[in-house]
Amino acid sequence: MNRTSRLERGGTPPLSHAPSGEETSSIGARMRSRLEAYGFLSPAVLLVTLFFFIPVIIIFILILSDLKSANFGTLQWWLPVNWSLENYAKIFGNKFFPKILGNTFFYVAVTLTLFIFSSALLIAVLTTHINRRAGFFFRVLWLLPRLTPSVIYIMMWQRMASRAPHGILNQLLVPLGISTGGDLIQAAPWLFVIIANGMIGASFGMVIFTSAIEAIPKDFMMASKVDGASTWQTIRHVILPSIKWPILFVITYQTLSLLTSFEQIMLLTDGGPGLYKTEVWALTAYHRALSNYFGNNQWGYGSAWAVILVIIGVAAASIYMRVFKFDELVQEPKIDLL
């Protein structure tokens, strides 16, 4: 539209006295500005629809069906006649179900307390109380596991634990008589699963705690030192109370991510050794549906496992938004589209 015509349109004769409350923008202009906004959003909306919404819907239908490699193409899984709750009967009837459930709780709880919380906090406190550059150096080292391709990272751990004479730990432990030289992952799989995952997870808490600690006004720390507080007292009475929210955030966020991620476990033990020794919930879902390990992809059954995590995920995510007042970060635009 050229400029004069737009001016003319703007010039439609107005009422001499505008009735109050009357909408003062033209429908055409509003349409145009909306299209503009949706234009900016459309690529994101497309991808989010393809890889979040549709998959969620698919999964929720799949849990009702018995779709697997064997009947793929013949079973009309999208038709309600083929729906049942059979999958859940199968899950709860599975004799390894208690084992997997227990594994999941054990893994999440132990990793969380030992690493995500304790180690992360310890490193954050220590590295902020020593020489700045040294502190930075240690934090960078701790970030390495997160930046390293997981395949390589896990490879390091496997080598660390492998049997004598190759294993690094065995080189030390065999002479001390603590180990007989066998593969240590076979001997203590949980130990390695938890350490390997924990060292990645710890860096998340470490970074957030560090920035929270550095944000504590220096006066606070000084005041407590002047008052004659010991380092431990400073930590207890000054640092911990002022990073209460970051701690809560890290714990909740990481609980969810431990609960649902399985990449490192899959690479390290793949749920073994033996039957379901370190198999966790998320890994079970993946194994059943997408891994050819059992020679049969049981998509329906696998989804039934996964959906429980999806529900936990949505619930947890909406709780964050409430608790951490994310919506307060949202400000109103200060330009009206005409």
Binding site: R3, R6, L7, R9, G10, G11, T12, P14, T24, S25, S26, A29, L338
Partner: peptide, 11 residues
């Protein structure tokens, strides 16, 4: 005398 309520800033 021309109502410009509908006019974009650039115009």
């Amino acid at each position: 005398d021309r109502v410009v309520n509908y006019l974009a800033p650039k115009d």
